[in-house]
Write a protein that binds this DNA or RNA. Structure first.
Lengths: 201, 201, 201, 201
DNA sequence: GATGAATGAGCGTTCATTCAT
DNA sequence: GATGAATGAACGCTCATTCAT
């Protein structure tokens, strides 16, 4: 029975080890500086093993992206102030994103690369239709904000761009060493974004 | 007559043909989907010919970037309302950028890829110190805005992020077909960006 | 039975096949007439396979050289008349070298090319300090000859040149068809070399 | 008339400038490290110009070799002690060769490379039949030495190898910095070579 | 005659993917 | 299931040679 339990628990989930190695190496070395062989080596598995878990390189790259996206979604949802104001929800999201990507440089850099590669466009197209948890959140925020006349009238994607583009760029500047985002700056940014979308009083 | 002859015979500058081919292929196929041989073929020159004009691939990629940057800088400066308000200057810049990149999809896509590649970081670092015409403009805007108490207190890079990140993301959405940026939407975006940086009345 | 199986299955060591192909093609076509692709083809492996065994072209070229050098060293040492006179030792070495390179034209031609290439100088410099088995032999011969007043007073490299240069040149002439080195001529050469280094009676 | 003279004298002989540039660059950078374009640049002529004077790269390489060979031949003949003993003639040749190649490192290095390249074999074969001035000298020395019973009985090429191989190797060691050939060492070498070929007293 | 821009075959090397063990 | 040796197409780049001017 112990043995059974051991067997059941033993795998340190090879798939996950590969995913983590891919995250690190692709983020650090760039999408075109991390060969499959190196990812395998870092994960301490055979090269061929990767192909048991991921059909090919593209699938692996997509999988890492999904891992990050799902993790962030979970964080956003964890303490989501569903019952509070649109503004409160927006600030929650803004600060969560900043904190998450400041604390996870690799994941940020990965995403940055991902969104500027052939992979992302298809993804993005899908996400606008087949909503994930994250998209659900954003769309709901947008709809509620519009319905309550709290945000300006504008297409949803524009709302999205105004709300989050500066946050992402600022985090990039932080990781590049151009600025240090502390709590104060973080507030400045999220507040300013809010100013850009909120309807005039 | 000599001048006529010169004008008549002026070669369709091979360097420029290569630059245009590189722009198109690198933008369309991605930085890693456009081999030198294909760029040469598209430019209707021999592979080796590229290397007469550009020391290597990296130099070519940088040269295309500079071409775009310089072109945009020229447009920004052409009718720059130097004597007018910070707000007027900001709106000028914002609209110029949107118009330019809406009208030049390839150049936009090229820049997008460029800024997420190893090339850009060095460039960016340089540009923050050794200012180009464009940077001059932005920095002056920031300084004047701060000095006149027109914009909120914040580091320059954050100012830059708030001001331009949504514009860039919106143009991307336009080219991806997620939204059509017409004059009205363009105004919405630039105004919203202005709201995010301007000091409260 | 296990041993039998092992022996039976032992693979025809791919590294060695590559080494032999490199030896043949580099010797026959010249260092600059034998592309990696042709070496691979001759070895009946994929081009990339070479790079599993040899980091790059230079390493392969050095490896072939080492193979030859080590083989010759082994032959020299096999029946080395350690206890006999300096003269006996010298004749042993001289005849071994002639015999070895007469019987192994490819290895001779390879070495000839090797020693006139950028590779060799570094090697040679190293070998003069960090002695290999072969160098050990030569140096010992020189020291003993000097100590016993059997050879003329001269720097070691000059001793080396007098002793072996004619041998190498003669073998080259043999392979070029300018002379046939039989036992008698072989003796003539080694004796003459001995005359050039031995102290007058 | 002055003009005529000027015209007649004016060309700094482009062919010769090319030859000198080829000598220097091929010797210094190696036969495979000196492209035609670089040779042309060094000679301050257009790339294509080389092809007016030399049909192709191989012809240029052969021409440089011939230049060196003819120069050395002239030196050997200049003060050749035709009327004196075989030994005197041999010493003359030996010392001339050493001096010439010690004083002309580029020419020595060029020759070294030349003799270990596909070019040389054909040359050598020709030279053994169609005698140049140099070969004439050597052959005469050999024949006279044999006829007068001054040198040992051996084929001519072996005679040649014994007589000159150590000299060439020693000069190489000199240029590589392994030994400094001064007058004393020079004598040691030539004397030793003489010992190797001279008949026992 | 002299030029040097243009060419493109050819090189060394990499790496996603397969498959025998 | 796991492995990693093997593959070969593809890449960036070089350079001997040509030829329009």
């Amino acid at each position: 029975m112990f043995i059974l339990k051991k067997d059941f628990m033993k795998k340190p989930d090879k798939r996950d080890v590969i995913l983590q190695s891919a995250l690190r190496l692709l983020a650090e070395q760039g999408f075109h500086g991390a060969p499959m062989a190196r990812i395998a080596e870092h994960a301490e598995v055979g090269t061929g093993t990767i192909y048991r878990y991921f059909e090919n390189r593209d699938v692996l790259i997509l999988a890492v992206h999904r891992m990050i996206r799902d993790e962030l979604t979970a964080i956003l949802l964890a303490h989501y102030p569903k019952e509070q104001s649109v503004k409160a929800c927006f600030f929650h999201i803004g600060h969560c994103i900043i904190d998450y990507f400041i604390q996870n440089p690799l994941k940020f850099q990965y995403n940055e690369q991902f969104f500027n590669s052939p992979y992302s466009n298809e993804i993005r197209r899908n996400e606008l239709t087949k909503a994930t948890g994250q998209q659900d959140l954003f769309q709901e925020l947008y709809r509620k904000g519009l319905a309550d006349h709290i945000i300006k009238t504008m297409p949803m994607v524009i709302f999205f761009d105004l709300a989050f583009a500066p946050i992402v760029w600022a985090v990039r500047d932080h990781h590049l060493g151009f600025v240090v985002i502390d709590k104060a700056i973080s507030n400045t940014i999220v507040s300013a974004c809010w100013d850009s979308i909120k309807r005039y009083p």
